[in-house]
Design a protein around this nucleic acid. Structure first.
Lengths: 210, 210, 210, 210
DNA sequence: CATGAATGAGAGTTCATTCAT
DNA sequence: AATGAATGAACTCTCATTCAT
């Protein structure tokens, strides 16, 4: 009996995992149910059995992804030591997570460029949670007189957007570097350098009174 | 000179224009040839007559968009006054252009999150041109001792990515603001405030020696 | 054993059967997937489900046809009594089979006049098998001193080509006879007369030393 | 003025010539108006201007082909010397003509395997003329007591069908010979050997009383 | 006579989804 | 819970044909 239950869970997990990769690689429309099923080694009808329809599966994938990243951040951040330490933790954790799970950036960017067309309600909740974390840090820093002239939404996109773009364009930048050596596309930068650079620059930016 | 019933240039332009809007709104896969043709008031076969296939039309749209933005920038920028003035012009022109033509941001972000899956060769050329403009400004600033510790690719995405994300998420942010007043999503910020804010912050960031 | 609503083998067979008739009647290009599906009372997508694409279905049809005729001949021929008896059996069996399944002649002639454009590899194998049967008979006859001056390929086409042409042109010849009584188009000849005539004449031809 | 007229004629001839080759190579349905126009270096609309529609062009091509072959035969045959000489001339002229204009065999075989679906009325007339020539020779031979037990339609297909099949399958037989040396596909036979062989064998066949 | 622009009616193929087992 | 069979609605693309110039 326990076997049965665990199999069902295992199947569901396998589906989410493979769907995530494929949605990230090819986008929502270009990913077919057949493809996902085949990648899982599961019958196609199972996708619909467990997730009702393609949109439902996609929603499940996105919740999974966003919840995971949120949890990663609140776990890794030794919250509340200092706003600056928190900011550093936020940036580095987010960057490291995206680098390890590169489909995440792709999924998030795509969703943002759709204005959340595929999953309005749910997207809001999960993305807001993420934005909420940074907002809180910034507000606290402002309260302590460390940060000035804060526009949290813009800062959020500066951090998160930049990281996501650098992650998704990695192969593209590598290819560009091979074609033309003149342009510096940061094609060999590793994620720790990148996140450290971003942190340093954003910190400066927030600390200035202007 | 007389208004013609059969004007190839006009038809081609109509197609590009409508395709651009639809590709931006719905993405490549979710946009159908029927839809585009109907929006143009043109027979579907014309799309293929002029652009060979859907991918060809998409490529034409993207070249058009990226070339237009490039030209806008090099026209509006009174080039070479000073790196700081150039930076300001770059940011503000780019932001204003995207705000006036909101499909642009959507198209660019989507393409970047695909790593240029739809148009490898061409994308490179056009995006590189844009990146090249900023690169040049940054390099000059560094040479003049105004900017320090420059990583151009990261700076580029910080500017361009942030603007694009703010443009595409505008409706989403508006909706979020209606639902919940607690969070500040910059939903009423207008584009000039935004681009000025970004310019100010980026300038600071570049001028610091760290 | 119970009659099933969903019987893959039955469906596949239905598709082959109807496709065979339609390809024979109208040729490859002029036969549409819609038409075939409708004739089968099956959804069009099933054709692609089972046979991948139109060419695949056509190939399946041809293999089916050629294998069937080959089997018919090796079954009906009491092989190896004497080359002459074998020749008679070959001619009469082939003729009777084509007469009973008139699409066969049409398919074969069409394919030959295309030089096997639609299915290079497969066509070779199956047609060669048929030609091999006659070749063997002729060679044996020659060895036994019964036949002389044999050019097997030419003899093969004389037999098989003539039969096929008489079968496919049957309606045409009937119509011609109605229009004009002067010309004798053998419009009332039945297949047994025809095959007997061919056998008699070919036998003479082979037995002469010239 | 004469120039104009001659140009029109030249254009029409160019169209017929190229259409003939393409119809022969690819069949009626698989040949497109675009293709023909491009091959001629003529605007597509011209095809319809001169020949009303595709079927009309095809009909024109076929009449051209069949009339040409008919004329060739009645020209080359020193008619009425003796039925045997006439037969020889008929076979050899037909074979040589098809060998020089290989599209002819393809077109004729295809048309016959359709039972003249594309051009009922016209096909009859032209094919009948050809068949009429042979019929007359056979009848005369019978009257003179040279030939016996004649079934003209069958003899006709034995001659014409065999020649056509050998011509159209030439590339196929060559390829088969390369793959497998065991089978003798007459792949190196030249047309004069073939037509002489056919003539010899048919002559024997007709002279026997059986 | 000649052209390029335009069209409508399909054709083949794909795919999310459902049904029967 | 799981599968393969089946479907209907779309989608991209093609092509004979016509129109305006």
């Amino acid at each position: 009996m326990a076997k049965q239950t665990r199999d069902a869970e295992a199947t569901k997990a396998k589906i989410i995992q493979n769907a995530m990769l494929l949605f990230a690689k090819n986008g929502y429309d270009a990913t077919t149910a057949d493809e996902i099923a085949q990648a899982c080694g599961v019958n196609k009808a199972m996708l619909f059995y467990y997730y009702k329809n393609k949109a439902g599966l996609y929603a499940a994938v996105m919740t999974h992804v966003l919840d995971a990243i949120h949890e990663e951040i609140i776990t890794k951040d030794k919250c509340c030591v200092s706003p600056i330490a928190d900011l550093e933790a936020f940036i580095k954790t987010y960057a490291a997570y995206c680098d390890n799970n590169p489909y995440v950036s792709s999924l998030i960017l795509r969703e943002l460029s759709d204005s959340g067309a595929h999953l309005p309600e749910m997207m809001f909740a999960s993305l807001r949670k993420l934005f909420g974390l940074l907002s809180e840090i910034l507000r606290e820093g402002e309260k302590q007189g460390l940060f000035h002239n804060i526009e949290p939404m813009i800062i959020h996109f500066m951090i998160v957007g930049t990281i996501n773009l650098l992650v998704t364009t990695k192969p593209m930048r590598k290819k560009a570097a091979e074609l033309e050596t003149e342009l510096n596309t940061c094609s060999d930068c590793d994620i720790d350098e990148i996140s450290h650079y971003i942190f340093t620059k954003v910190k400066l930016m927030l600390e200035m009174k202007q």
